[in-house]
Simulated scan of single mutants.
Amino acid sequence: MEIVKLHYPLAENVGSKEKIVLAMGFFDGVHLGHQDVLHQAKQKAQELGAKFCVLTYDHHPAIVYKQLNAHEKRYLTLYDEKMRIFESLGVDRVYYTNYTYAFQNQTEQEFVDNFIKRFNAVAVVAGFDHTYGGTNTADMKHLPKYSDGKFEVITAKPVELADEKVSSSRIRQALDNCNIELADQLLGRPFRSSGVVVHGREVGRLLGYPTANVEHSELQWLPNVGIYIVRVEVAGKQHIAMASVGHNVTFSDTLPMTIEINILDFNQNIYGETLIVDWLSHIRDEVKFETTEQLTEQLYADEVFTRDYLKLHPEIISTH
C-alpha cells in the first residue's frame, strides 16, 4: 500500500492521472461503519477498474476550531494501526493530509478541485455525516453540486448495532464504561493498543504474578481503570494474559496510572519489546486490598477466570 503525505496548499506536481475511487473520512477506529464505506469504495473501484484510495487526516479536524482537553485528544487508532487496517482491507493508496485551518478554510469548490478532481477521482464514497469544510453546505448532500458531473457521489448509510448507530464516540464511551465486549462488536475486531515494555516497580513479581509494564502513547485511548482479559502478541507469538489499568491503590493512593500485563505461562525477559494488546473482556474493577495476601488471592481468582475464558474461546489464540 502506498502512503502519500499531503500538505495544503498542494505542490504543483501533486495529483494523479490514473482513475481512482476515493473513500473520505477521518476513520478513527475503522469501525463497522467505516468498514462499510471502505468496502463500498473497494467494490466500486473494482467495478470501474480504478485504484482504491483513501483521503484521511493526521489529526482530528476538531483541533482546528475548538480547544480539546487531554482525553479528547486521544484516538482509538493511531497512525501505524490505522494504516495496517487500511492495508488489510485492500486499500491501494492513502492520501494522508495535514488538517489545518487553511485546509478547512477552502471553499467547497476549492476542496473538490484540489482533492477530488486533481486526483482524477471517478467516484467518491463517504458516510452520510461526512463533512469536508467549515460551512453548512460542505457535506455529502451538496457534493454533487460541485462535481460538474465528473465523478459519482456515493453516500453510505449509517450502520447500526442494537438499534443504535455505530460510531467512534460510542466506542469511546464503551471503553470508558469498561464494556470491552461492546467496543469489540462495534469495531468488528478486538480493540487494540500497543506499547513498549519498560521497567516498573516489580511488585507483581514479589506476589508471584510478574507483570510487563507497558508504556503507551499519550494519544492512545485506553479502557478505563480495571482488570481485563487480553490477548498479547510479543515477538510474533500470541498469549493469553491479564491486564491491569490502574494506580496500584493497594500500595499507595498517589501512584500514577499504569498498564501492567501478566502473561500466563510465560517467563521471558521482554524489556524493550513492543507488546501488541488485544482487549477482550472486563474481569472486575480495581480494588484497594487491606493486605497483600488478599491481593494475591484475588489475582489467583482472576487467573482462574482468565483460563476459563480461554477454554470457552480457544479460537482467540492462534496456533499458526
Rank of each mutant, 00 (worst) to 15 (best):
E215N: 12
A243T: 05
Y132H: 07
T254K: 14
S16H: 07
Y79C: 12
I227L: 07
I229H: 00
V54Y: 07
H71Q: 13
K117L: 15
E81H: 14
Y300W: 11
A70D: 13
E290M: 09
E47Y: 08
E202A: 13
S169A: 13
Q46T: 05
E160I: 08
E18A: 09
F128E: 10
P158D: 08
L275G: 06
K73I: 00
T135V: 06
D36T: 12
T250E: 00
K66C: 09
R201D: 13
Y101I: 14
E290R: 11
E110A: 13
S169N: 05
H39D: 12
Q106V: 08
K51L: 14
G246Y: 09
M140Y: 05
I283T: 03
V287N: 05
N98E: 15
S16M: 10
Q35W: 05
L78W: 02
K157E: 14
V21R: 06
A45N: 10
D285T: 11
P223Y: 03
F251A: 10
H247P: 01
A243V: 02
L32N: 07
L187A: 00
Y209A: 06
P190K: 01
Q220W: 04
A241K: 00
M140F: 07
Q35E: 11
V159G: 07
T56S: 13
Y75G: 05
T135W: 04
L186E: 13
L255A: 14
Q220I: 00
L22A: 08
L78T: 05
I317L: 15
T155S: 13
G25E: 08
Y99G: 07
S169E: 11
T211K: 04
N98W: 05
Q238A: 03
I154F: 10
Q67K: 15
M140G: 00
Q67R: 11
Q173F: 04
I171H: 08
K311L: 14
L219S: 09
G25F: 06
A50P: 02
G236S: 04
L280W: 01
M1H: 10
K42N: 10
G29T: 01
Y79I: 12
L310R: 06
N105F: 05
A212K: 04
G188T: 01
K51Q: 13
V197K: 08
P144R: 07
Q109C: 06
F52Q: 04
K73H: 05
P144Y: 11
H282M: 13
K19M: 12
N105T: 08
E81A: 10
L89E: 00
K150Y: 09
I240T: 02
G188Q: 05
M257S: 12
Q67N: 12
K51H: 11
G246H: 08
L38C: 03
Y57T: 06
H216M: 14
E260V: 03
F119S: 04
Q67S: 12
Q173T: 13
L255M: 13
I240E: 03
A241E: 02
N114M: 02
V197W: 03
K117W: 04
Y101H: 15
D308N: 15
M83F: 15
A62Y: 09
V14T: 10
G200V: 02
I270S: 09
V112W: 03
A45I: 01
Q35Y: 01
V124S: 01
V124T: 06
L264N: 02
V64C: 08
Q46N: 12
D92Q: 03
E12K: 14
Y96H: 15
V122S: 11
E12C: 01
I63G: 01
R118M: 06
D278R: 03
H199R: 12
E218C: 08
H282C: 07
R201M: 12
L255Y: 14
